[in-house]
Structure formats: C-alpha cells, structure tokens
Amino acid sequence: MSERISAEVVAKVARLARLDLTPEEIERTTTQLADMLEHFADIDALQLDDVAPMAQPYPLDNVFREDVIAPGLDRDEVLAAAPAAEHGRFRVPPIIGLDL
C-alpha cells in the first residue's frame, strides 16, 4: 500500500468525517494511521484476484416488509430531546458550504 499517509491527507479525511482535529491531533493521527496501515500491509502478500468480496456473513436475500402503516413516534417527545427545535421542526444554524 505504497507511501506513508501524509498529514495533508489526514486533514482532508478529517474534513470529510466532520471532525475538527487540532494540529496536534492531526500530527498524532497521521503517525498512528501510518503505523497501522504499515501493519495492515500484511494482506498485500495474499493472492486475492479470484476471491469474491464478502460483505455479510449470512447469505439472505429478498427480505421485505408489507406496505402497512404502524404507529410512529410522538413529535413532541422527539423534539423535546432535540438540541434545538421550533414550530414542530428541528432548528439548525445557517446551511452553507453544503449545498447538494
């Protein structure tokens, strides 16, 4: 798995994960991730070309629920537990830099 991970990449990953890390944390994380990835390089030795990836341990398919309404949650109970709410809705600070 090629060259050691850089602080720049770690900083980019932190932004992607929405974790505000301090410069010190970025430094420490860079070293720790690099050490781990180095250790994890052990699987590079394996011949995996004709091995199918396995995402789930127990093979199931076509699991459905029927299209029938069941009682949901009480809005007031849920909003009471929210960091901020008004007019029956969740309140958040201005949404910028995230337009989709």
Binding site: R65, E66, R75
Partner: peptide, 24 residues
C-alpha cells in the same frame, strides 16, 4: 403537519434498522 410521519428509522435514531417495502 411537520414531523408527524416519523419513526426511529426515519429519524436515523441509534439502533434503528431498515426493512425494504415490498410494494416500493
């Protein structure tokens, strides 16, 4: 009315799990 059609899955509550709607 806002937030009246909600449940643990809809709100992404911790521990909630999706099950696929056959009619969809």
């Amino acid at each position: 009315e806002p937030n009246t059609n909600i449940d643990p899955v809809t709100l992404g509550l911790p521990g909630a799990l999706p099950v696929l709607n056959r009619q969809a």
